[in-house]
Write a protein that binds this DNA or RNA. Sequence first.
DNA 1: GCAACATCTGACCATCCGGTCAAAACCCAT
DNA 2: ATGGGTTTTGACCGGATGGTCAGATGTTGC
Lengths: 201, 201
Amino acid sequence: MPRPKTRIQLRNSETILEAALDVFSSQGFRGATLDQIAEVAGLSKPNLLYYFPSKEAIHQTLLTRLLHTWLDPLREMDPNGDPVAEIMGYVRRKLELSRNFPRESRLFAIEILQGAPRMRAAIEGELTELVAEKALVLQRWMDEGRIARLDPVHLVFSIWALTQHYADFDVQVRTVLGEGHDPYAEAGAFLETLYARLLAP
Amino acid sequence: MPRPKTRIQLRNSETILEAALDVFSSQGFRGATLDQIAEVAGLSKPNLLYYFPSKEAIHQTLLTRLLHTWLDPLREMDPNGDPVAEIMGYVRRKLELSRNFPRESRLFAIEILQGAPRMRAAIEGELTELVAEKALVLQRWMDEGRIARLDPVHLVFSIWALTQHYADFDVQVRTVLGEGHDPYAEAGAFLETLYARLLAP
DNA sequence: GCAACATCTGACCATCCGGTCAAAACCCAT
DNA sequence: ATGGGTTTTGACCGGATGGTCAGATGTTGC
């Protein structure tokens, strides 16, 4: 029952988490059922509960993993690099995250939307601290006149909002755009322009 | 049972919708229970079902109302007005909507996040048409050199993303900002700067 | 090939939840 | 005040759902 030890445990734990991500991200926590997850995973319900003690535990594991993937691109923003290039790099990485991990993005969004009942601690701690740290870097860049003067925290919010939108509101984006569009490619170009203009000192 | 006729029917229907908005927007459709809604409304569960035929029907009523509130600010964008002022006005109205109707915003977000199972038609129809119409106006403004050349649809997406973020991710925004901030006032100032810089020809 | 342990499952349980219904309580025009 | 309609409710139902458990089936080291 403890976390992965044998090959089988590792494989099945992963299968379950993969299936759970599918279901949780499209139905929310309460909307998801163990039967659904079991079916997607190709395992029996009691078998899920052999690997994880509860539905809660599966969800919690997903959220914990998520947070790291989530914050890494911001962590990588180098205080010693070129300001515009660093911020652009962050935007690009975050957009890639939306493109490659839309389910993770939606899982996160649902959690926050519902008041972050199972993630408060992480948001109050790790996330807030990281933003505070990077806001200082942004502030310094502004003070040095290397980028335009803006509220650094809201600048970060804008990046989150604009990149996550494409994963979280995917259905809407694709419907409005219609056939024959590559939303992410277009978004990349649009955001490039947007931040170039916004950041120019 | 049909929609409001007597005073009591009107009052109770409203009470129920108000309570349902509270619960649906914070728990999602499946997460919400009739018992919860009944409790918030101060009515008994069977009494809810005297006014609405089902849980679905309550939800559907909310979504239908929502769509109008939602699209109105975009409708108001005047093709004959001053381009920058009109777009800024739309941004401001949309941000006001987030501030004054965060629950509606979250209800909408949850619906789209989960693939818009109960709103597809409206999105494919009304919403897509309105965006197409306004995109033409934006395109014309660009062709006339009155605002910068951008992808007009993604410009609209950016407004949606940036304004809704403050309602949908309220918990995160407030946590990261900490005490002593007025998120919406700051967001207003930030977005003013952002769109001024982005739209300048 | 076999013991010891890991993995898996069918059957089952308690609870929750959307919805029904018959009857009670209420309201109000006459 | 009384009768007819409206509103409200307690009791109940059937199905879904998270979780349990005893035992069956597999796997592995010897």
